[in-house]
Simulated scan of single mutants.
Amino acid sequence: MNRTMITATNTLAQLQKQMDIVSHNVANMDTAGYKRREANFTDLLFQQFNNQRNLNAEEVRLTPAGIRQGVGAKLAQSQIVLQQGALKATERPLDLAFTKEGQYFRVLEQTEDGAAMRYTRAGAFYLTPVSDNETMLVTGDGYPVLDENNNSIIINGQAKNFKVTETGSFLAEAANGAIQEFNLGVVLINKPQFLEQQGNNLLGLPDGAAGEGIFTELNGALRGQIGMAQGSLEQSNVDMSKEMTDLINLQRAYQFQSRSVSMADQMMGLINGIR
Rank of each mutant, 00 (worst) to 15 (best):
N2Y: 05
T4V: 12
N10E: 06
T11L: 09
A13G: 13
K17M: 15
M19S: 12
S23H: 05
S23P: 04
G33H: 00
R36E: 07
A39C: 10
L44T: 05
Q47S: 09
Q52V: 01
N54Q: 07
A57Y: 03
G72F: 04
L75D: 02
A76Q: 11
Q77G: 04
S78I: 11
L82N: 07
L82A: 08
L82C: 02
Q83W: 00
L87Q: 07
E91D: 15
D95A: 03
T99W: 04
G102I: 01
L108Q: 03
A115W: 11
A116S: 12
M117K: 08
G123A: 03
G123H: 04
V130A: 03
N133I: 11
N133L: 10
T135I: 03
N150V: 03
N161R: 10
S169I: 10
A174W: 07
E181Y: 09
I189V: 15
P192F: 08
P192M: 13
P192Y: 12
L195W: 00
E196A: 08
N201C: 08
L202E: 01
G208Q: 12
A210Y: 13
G213A: 13
I214T: 11
T216V: 15
N219G: 10
G220H: 09
R223M: 13
G224I: 04
G224E: 14
A229Q: 14
G231D: 12
L233Q: 05
Q235E: 12
E243Y: 04
E243F: 03
M244L: 15
L250W: 05
F256M: 12
S258Q: 07
V261I: 13
M267I: 14
N272Q: 15
G273C: 08
I274D: 10
